[in-house]
């Protein structure tokens, strides 16, 4: 097995212990629920959108270290960004986690989110890291139905 330290990086553990932007948002313009059936992770994402800009973003819920840290770092990465910025970041993040191990992901463009690159060596945990991002997609579409990672 690849080293657990690749998975549980200090940055990830820090966000797990002290998640940023973890609170409800009464004046959200859009919310969505995400659910990972495998481990029971549940997340609710809140967005405050204004003319294509993510003015505020937060989440609540219960999840594993990976999904909690992923949600926390996603909110940090996206606050103040436009939806147009968010989409390619989601795609990069997704590609990093799902690309074959011999392909070097574009870690530079991912900036801080590159700490999740170790997750791809733990295939069953990839969904934990992507759950917040899939939930974001749902919130952007403002779907009411909860998304799952299936």
């Amino acid at each position: 097995m690849s080293d657990l330290r690749d998975l549980y990086q200090q940055t990830i553990l820090d966000h797990t212990r002290k998640p940023r932007n973890k609170h409800e948002m009464p004046n959200a313009t859009s919310t969505a629920d995400g659910h990972n059936r495998l481990c029971g992770d549940k997340i609710r994402l809140f967005l405050k959108l204004n003319a294509g800009v993510i003015e505020d973003i937060s989440f609540t819920g219960n999840g594993c270290a990976i999904s909690t840290a992923s949600a926390s770092m996603m909110t940090e990465a996206l606050k103040g960004k436009t939806l147009a910025d968010a989409q390619p970041l989601f795609e990069l993040f997704h590609t990093m986690l799902t690309s074959p191990l011999d392909q070097e992901p574009d870690l530079e463009a991912l900036n801080k989110l590159a700490v999740f690159s170790g997750v791809r060596e733990f295939p069953v945990r990839v969904k934990c890291a992507t759950l917040p991002w899939h939930t974001l997609q749902a919130a952007i579409k403002n779907q009411d139905a909860p998304v799952t990672t299936e």
Binding site: L38, D41, N62, I66
Partner: peptide, 14 residues
């Protein structure tokens, strides 16, 4: 306490 079962499973598996 403060550790999700899924993380327990992964680390124990290792």
């Amino acid at each position: 306490e403060n550790i999700h079962p899924h993380d327990i499973g992964t680390i124990v598996d290792g």
